[in-house]
């Protein structure tokens, strides 16, 4: 019991350090703060459950991305709705931003929310500066496939964002 408690504590501290990864995933796959918190908790739980199978051959952050994305993609209980940016964005911080930048960020999120589950994962990893090799190893597809898909997704996003500017 004591060993389990200390393992949980140690694991929680590791997650605390890397929690930005989970936040990024929840931002892309949810519609508002309540959904975001639910998904955050679910990801933490699945990370803990999968931890015994974690092998050091993969980077901890890569493994975390895998679990977080697999949890978000498998989370089919809630249907996708349009993102309500008023709920998603921190209004206090947003008020100080110039309105065109605010609009651009809203456009980016609205565009990402229209992508399918897999394309969301691909663009998220690319925006987070992951290499094609790392993206391929997280999703289990070839590097060529990653590159072909990213070209198409970026084009789609640009059409949605920049043509509306």
């Amino acid at each position: 019991m004591k060993v389990l408690r200390s393992k949980k504590k140690e694991f929680s501290e590791m997650i605390e350090k890397h929690q930005a990864i989970i936040h990024k995933v929840t931002m892309v796959y949810t519609n508002g703060p309540a959904d975001r918190e639910d998904l955050f908790q679910e990801i933490c739980l699945q990370l803990w459950r999968s931890y015994p199978n974690f092998r050091e051959e993969a980077k901890f952050s890569t493994w975390m991305y895998r679990v977080a994305l697999n949890t978000a993609i498998s989370n089919v209980r809630k249907k996708n709705r349009d993102i309500h940016f008023e709920q998603l964005l921190d209004n206090d911080r947003m008020e100080t931003e110039p309105s065109d930048e605010k609009e651009q960020i809203q456009l980016l999120y609205r565009a990402i929310s229209k992508l399918n589950q897999i394309d969301k994962a691909l663009i998220l990893l690319w925006l987070d500066e992951k290499s094609y090799e790392e993206i391929a190893s997280i999703l289990g597809i070839s590097k060529t496939n990653v590159s072909v898909k990213l070209v198409r997704i970026k084009r789609k996003l640009e059409e949605m964002i920049f043509t509306q500017e």
Partner: peptide, 29 residues
């Protein structure tokens, strides 16, 4: 431009950081 927008958005999104004690509660849920 896409990456700049993303980085900007990241700092503006109101995602609160969780303490390890909260995470410990989540994994026991």
């Amino acid at each position: 431009k896409l990456k700049d927008m993303w980085n900007k958005a990241e700092t503006l999104l109101g995602a609160s950081d969780y303490e390890s004690s909260s995470i410990e509660q989540f994994i026991s849920g």
